[in-house]
Computed example of a mutant assay.
Amino acid sequence: MDFASTPATMRRPLRVAIYARVSTTDQNPEGQLTALREFADRRGFEVFREYVDYITGDTTKRRRRAPEFESLMADAKQRHFDCVLVWKYDRFARSLATLVTALNEFHALGIDFISHTQNVDTTTPMGRLFFNVIGSFAEFERDIIVDRVKLGLANARAKGIVLGRPIRDPSAMERIAKMKEAGLSLRQIAKLEKLSASGVRKILLRAAAAHGEGINF
Rank of each mutant, 00 (worst) to 15 (best):
Phe3Trp: 14
Phe3Lys: 10
Ser5Leu: 10
Pro7Arg: 09
Arg15Gly: 06
Tyr19His: 09
Ala20Gln: 09
Ala20Gly: 14
Arg21Asn: 04
Val22Cys: 07
Val22Phe: 07
Gln27Glu: 15
Gln27Gly: 14
Asn28Tyr: 09
Gln32Ala: 05
Leu33Lys: 12
Ala35Thr: 07
Phe39Met: 12
Arg43Glu: 14
Gly44Glu: 02
Gly44Phe: 09
Arg49Met: 01
Asp53Gly: 07
Ile55Lys: 03
Thr59Val: 12
Arg62Ala: 12
Arg63Glu: 04
Leu72His: 05
Leu72Cys: 10
Met73Phe: 08
Met73Ala: 09
Arg79Met: 05
Arg79Pro: 02
Arg79Thr: 02
Arg79Leu: 12
His80Leu: 15
Asp82Pro: 06
Val84His: 06
Val86Asn: 08
Lys88Ile: 00
Arg94Ser: 00
Ser95Gln: 04
Ala97Glu: 13
Ala102Ile: 03
Leu103Phe: 11
Phe113Ala: 11
Ile114Asn: 08
His116Phe: 15
Gln118Val: 02
Met126Thr: 11
Met126Ala: 13
Phe130Arg: 01
Phe137Met: 15
Ala154Glu: 15
Gly160Glu: 06
Gly160Cys: 05
Gly164Asn: 08
Pro166Met: 11
Ala177Arg: 12
Ala177Gln: 10
Lys178His: 10
Lys180Thr: 04
Leu184Asn: 15
Leu186Pro: 02
Gln188Asn: 09
Lys194Ile: 04
Leu195Phe: 12
Gly199Lys: 12
Val200Gln: 02
Arg201Val: 02
Arg201Met: 09
Ala208Gly: 00
Asn216Asp: 09
